[in-house]
Design a protein around this nucleic acid. Sequence first.
DNA 1: ATCGCTGCAAACAGTTTGCAGTCCA
DNA 2: TGGACTGCAAACTGTTTGCAGCGAT
Lengths: 140, 140
Amino acid sequence: MEKLITILRERGYKITPQRRAVITAFLESDKFATAQQILDRVRETNPDMSLDTVYRNLALLVNLGVISEINIRGKDGNIYELITTEHHHHLVCLNCGKAECLDFCPINCEKLENASKNGFNITSHSLEFYGYCYNCRTTG
Amino acid sequence: MEKLITILRERGYKITPQRRAVITAFLESDKFATAQQILDRVRETNPDMSLDTVYRNLALLVNLGVISEINIRGKDGNIYELITTEHHHHLVCLNCGKAECLDFCPINCEKLENASKNGFNITSHSLEFYGYCYNCRTTG
DNA sequence: ATCGCTGCAAACAGTTTGCAGTCCA
DNA sequence: TGGACTGCAAACTGTTTGCAGCGAT
């Protein structure tokens, strides 16, 4: 938390209560959240918070490279997550919508090299697995 | 083309000129298209076509399991693609936005089994690679 | 006292829906 | 002929932007 605040301060950004609240809510959301989820959480303590501010602060954090936006199938908007040093992927539950991190990358890099030989220079990839989490499978 | 028409007919759907045009345009789009791209193409021959109809027909085809919607990073909407019998992935050029198909799945399935052992039942996955295609690399 | 940040409201883009008229089967 | 399909317009969702005032530095 203070680490993020320090980064912002160092780069000349002001530390407003709203900004603090967004960061706090974000860190509390278990690394995954949509803008709306963050707003809901922030409003528990800052009822006047606006969604715009959430978006603006998330965008700022994305620009600073602190968090990232990921694509999850579904229409409820983009999901933001903390950038960790490790490149990783997600298991997304089709029932409850929760995402878990995968702690390894199951991509076969040798095969990938081949694709690059066709002239395509791969710089990144996004990989999400869909299915049903333990909870939903056993209680559904 | 006629195969799709037959499927529709068999299920009791009417074959309207608009529906034909959407299917034709879709097949011509090299298997990838956004709703808007299909509309643009359709309008070359059917200038009165509306975007709603494109959406409705794409949704119908998705429901019939004939085409699918895929997530590509970017804000210009969902991309639809023909379902082929082969499960496959895409190389998406960050410069021109074009997508190419990958003819194999570079996912290491053994490792994946492990994840499932944590209680998560994986039913599908989406994987997109981002980078720069030959054209953009050499002419950019 | 700045100048960035905020809330508000309005604008956006992509998509969906209600409705009255059209047209395929 | 009748129900499915269409175009239009309006609604909706997630997101962005313009603006005037507020507040961290």
